[in-house]
Design a protein around this nucleic acid. Structure first.
Lengths: 112, 112
DNA sequence: CAAATATATGAACGTATGTTCATATATTAT
DNA sequence: ATAATATATGAACATACGTTCATATATTTG
């Protein structure tokens, strides 16, 4: 009886149990937000759709680098695109992007 | 006059301009969420604080791996900890963690 | 104090990531 | 068809990341 406290090592509470795959998908989603270049691209699209070269100019990077990242963003459904002649315009996919962005911003700006 | 359309290459709209440093901080924050192990740790803390070994057991990983990740999570202010004797309990730092997590979840579950 | 337990940490290792460079594709203009 | 423009993509490279292993620190127990 005297070491009953010692025995109960871990009081197991069942925690929020999401499927493995969901967690991987979720991690992949946040991974997309986890790079300042991609965040800057998203910022550039906040007001209106933009073409690749415009974004590249604005960020001072090559169109190749931007194109690679846009593909990544599109694969993860954070942006959509439409072709207009030679140029392709990219736009934010939906409001979640903005909301996730804003929640993150709130978090970092809250800390001292 | 005939190629005036050709000339206006990029109609520059000023986009949301955040300081470089803010973007890096924001990317760092999302980077933390961009790993399934860390997400699982956060899940494990959703209901209540937990000690390192408990989390390690639950995730089927070594305490070393978990400890490394918890340090990372703490550096980014997503968790706090308190010591109780030999064991150290970790807990979610604030509600932003949950909200960012939930927004992400909404996003991936919305898509078909 | 020594042993046991819980956690932390540095080094090392393989893998993933972001950019660049060269090249390919697509559209338009001549 | 050829040239010019806009974008996409594969390979290569350097860097960053996550885990493991060994070891260190901290607390409690005997």
């Amino acid at each position: 009886m005297k070491h009953s406290l010692k025995i109960q090592k871990h009081i197991c509470k069942p925690s929020l149990k999401l499927p493995e795959e969901t967690l991987y998908d979720l991690a992949d989603l946040f991974k997309v937000f986890g790079d300042s270049t991609r965040l800057r691209i998203l910022c550039a699209l906040f007001d209106s759709e933009q073409c690749v070269q415009h974004i590249a100019d604005e960020l001072g990077m090559t169109h190749s680098a931007i194109s690679h990242q846009l593909r990544f963003l599109k694969q993860n459904k954070l942006v959509t695109n439409r072709r207009n002649g030679k140029t392709i315009f990219y736009a934010l996919a939906d409001e979640h992007v903005r909301r996730i962005f804003d929640q993150g911003l709130e978090h970092i700006q809250e800390e001292v």
